[in-house]
Structures are given as C-alpha cells and as structure tokens.
C-alpha cells in the first residue's frame, strides 16, 4: 500500500510540476510594461527630481539631470524590454546620469584625490585624524536617509492622486503658494480649493498608512 501511495504522490507532484511549467509559459506571453513618454514629465518628474536632489544637493543640477534622463530614455526607448516598470527603468537611467555627473566634476586627476584638511576654524593641535571619523552615536546620517525615503514615499502617493488634486496639493504644500495665487492660476474658488486639499490629504494619509508607517 505505501508503495502505491508513494507513486500516487509522485504522480501528483509531476502534475503540479507540469502545471507550473505551463503557468510559467503563460507568464511570458503576458503583456509586459510599456512606455508612455508623453506622460513622463507629469508622472515622474517630481519623483526623479527628489531622488536627484538627494544625491547632488543642487536643485539646478538635479533639474538638468532629470531632463537628461528623460532625453536618454526617449533615445533608448527601443531598447526597453518591458521587464521593469517605467519608473524603475527611468530611475536606473538617472542613477547612471548621477554617476556621470560626479565623474565629470572629478575628471581632473587631482580632484579625485581624497584630501583631508584640518578644520581651519578650530585649533590645529590634537588628534585631528580621529576627529574626522564619523561619530558612531550620531543619528544624523540615518535621519537624512530616512527622510529621503519618506520624501520619495510621499511623492509616490501624490502621483497616485487625481491630476488636479495633486497639482493643488503640490502648489500649496511644497511650493507654499498662497490660496489666492492658486485660485487665480487654476481658476477655481477658495472653497473648491479647500475641498480638493481635503480630499488629497485624506487620500495621502490612507496611502502613507500602506506604504510608510502608521500615521
């Protein structure tokens, strides 16, 4: 009896195995990701911009890098295989652009050297080499990393909002524009604006609850 059972189990396993193979085959035929370059600026510009600012610490350079990324994306759109999502693909290009940027500004050999200058404002005596080492008890660096990730998580959620709501939210919260200016620019009345802000904020709290920590 046990021998038959064993065979039976084996049969089952074969069955499962062959099933998974056909499933895998189906997977390959599934429609893959596609590129929609005309929506790039609206959908990803802010996300990429935040990513770049975190790495080059200069808004103007970051803006140029984002633009170059879109441009490079357009040029190599035919090489896009559809394995990664659109944004992941663009981020990968942006990463190369950031590296290229640092290569460019460090192109002269001398600039590539690591120089340690003793802080001119303090006394030049003492264990200066030891003082250059990062403080192991400092939370500052972790905070910076965490805040950058938080910023990207917020932008991710903002990009999921309806276009007008995300626009109003960005103008009000990020660019700090006054209610009056926004109303003039978008041709809406203040109560309309506050309704949109309310909806955007409620949706954001819900989204961040899923993608970040409990609010």
């Amino acid at each position: 009896m046990p021998a038959i059972k064993y065979e039976y189990q084996n049969e089952n396993m074969k069955l499962i195995k062959s099933n998974s193979i056909t499933f895998g085959g189906d997977n390959k035929q599934m429609p893959t990701n596609q590129l929609f370059p005309e929506t790039w600026v609206d959908s990803y510009a802010d996300y990429l911009f935040n990513y770049a600012v975190g790495r080059v610490s200069d808004a103007e350079i970051a803006k140029d890098l984002v633009q170059e990324t879109f441009f490079a994306g357009l040029k190599s759109a035919k090489n896009y295989k559809g394995d990664a999502a659109e944004r992941t693909w663009l981020i990968a290009i942006l990463k190369r652009k950031v590296i290229d940027h640092y290569r460019k500004i460090n192109s002269k050999k001398g600039k590539a050297e690591v120089r340690m200058n003793y802080n001119a404002s303090s006394d030049s005596e003492g264990d200066w080499l030891e003082e250059q080492v990062a403080d192991p008890f400092s939370n500052f660096e972790n905070d910076a990393i965490e805040n950058e990730e938080l910023g990207l998580a917020i932008h991710d959620c903002v990009s999921k909002l309806p276009k007008k709501q995300s626009m109003v939210f960005k103008m009000k919260t990020i660019q700090g524009m006054s209610t009056e200016d926004i109303c003039n620019e978008l041709d809406i009345n203040p109560s309309n604006l506050w309704v949109m802000i309310h909806r955007a904020r409620t949706a954001l709290v819900g989204c961040l609850n899923q993608n970040w920590f409990e609010l």
């Binding site: 600026v41 510009a45 626009m167 990020i174 904020r201 609010l215």
Partner: peptide
C-alpha cells in the same frame, strides 16, 4: 502628523512652468 512629515521630508518639486519647459524641450 501629515503636515509634520511633509515638513520633515523637505519635499521639493518642479514648478508647472519648469515642467512645461521640459516638455517642450523633449
């Protein structure tokens, strides 16, 4: 809480004008 984390994250974004310029360039 949302306000405080938005401040903490030091959010930045491109202005609509900059986006329009970028679109035109592309």
């Amino acid at each position: 809480k949302l306000t405080s984390i938005c401040e903490k994250a030091k959010l930045r974004s491109l202005s609509e004008q900059e986006k329009v310029l970028m679109k035109e360039f592309l």
